[in-house]
Write a protein that binds this DNA or RNA. Sequence first.
DNA 1: GAAAATCTGTGACCAAAATCACAATCCAAT
DNA 2: ATTGGATTGTGATTTTGGTCACAGATTTTC
Lengths: 208, 208
Amino acid sequence: MKLKLNSITANQNGKELYSENEIILRKTLDKFNVLNDTEFSDFLNVCKYKEFAKKQYLLKSGNYNHGIYFLISGAVGLFELIDGKEMYQNFFLESEFANELKSLTTQTPSTKNLIALSDTTLFYLNRKELLELYEKSVSFERLGRKLLEHLLNGQNEISYVLQSLKPEERYAYLENKRPNLLNTIPLTYLASYLGLARETLSRIRAKR
Amino acid sequence: MKLKLNSITANQNGKELYSENEIILRKTLDKFNVLNDTEFSDFLNVCKYKEFAKKQYLLKSGNYNHGIYFLISGAVGLFELIDGKEMYQNFFLESEFANELKSLTTQTPSTKNLIALSDTTLFYLNRKELLELYEKSVSFERLGRKLLEHLLNGQNEISYVLQSLKPEERYAYLENKRPNLLNTIPLTYLASYLGLARETLSRIRAKR
DNA sequence: GAAAATCTGTGACCAAAATCACAATCCAAT
DNA sequence: ATTGGATTGTGATTTTGGTCACAGATTTTC
């Protein structure tokens, strides 16, 4: 297991120092166009850098979910055990927020698992500190609101795929919308994500 | 077409007057535990009472979505035309927010339609005024954030149903989680919602 | 209240995808 | 390098649910 170390980089005026990882986070958050410099600093202050080895669990079903994760590198899968099968419900790659919201927001034991699918580095945000950010400034509420809008749009699209598309079209959807998954995630997991038998997806791919 | 008129009701101290409809809205929003009295009044001020007859469109694909709707009575369906078929992606009944977020948040033409499935009364919230509320007080941002958390949890559940459940289990899911849909929404539409052929759902129901 | 449109039920048939079984590959760990 | 585990490929078979067709039933509309 080999993980990158943080390297430190100065910004233009040299007053503050951000690591590479922090710059990745900044760029991602800037897309939402909400946080100013000081607010971003406040955000950073509650981010804890963590590393997970492949196959390590970030969240195990039955436990409470205590936060969210911003991926710097690696891959995380969200899955649920159904009839003994691991049904993957989402995958998270770098610059994405790995999340399981049901347990986080309702504070009930999670039915789902978060697992590192490769060696992964990330920032961890504790639920309590997240709620404190929400209290601290309207900007964090706005960021949360916009992030959730984005996530919900994405989830609506997944539902559409599962409801309306045939197996080959589902694979084409992945090729177009999330091509990076094809390299990084085992076909077996992708099949469950698309609601297909492993063999079916294997045959679809063979035809290309 | 027959629609209820607003009747006026006094609250305890008699200082303010709320209509029945406004009380329904208040009760629903109170679940999120965010708005105080004055904030609720601000919210009400941007709500426009509207009526839609059965089969009237609230939003037509190709157009921009300009707001969200809080249902007082009736039923609204969200569907998309796919291969000439109306694929219903959601249903909204009384005390629910009928929404199509993709077009609303990204300001692109909608691929989806919102249609009244029976005579419907509702409050309409204009996008511009909604954004102004977000500017006005952190409470509205918080309300939006919590509502979106709630909606996303629901959408995750739908995805799970489509990904992992067999036809009979999908019907059982409706019976448990949204029993009111079974009475009010035609089986044909429910079938598309569940990703099933109309005939399949008809046979499942016949077995009960 | 008659006609038209919409919605539902049901049988016969078909096809697509799931399941089963096993071999081949790839990968990780010692 | 070798073992063991995980992952993938592929053929044979089965089954589920989709499609087609048409008849009733129910609702809407003029």
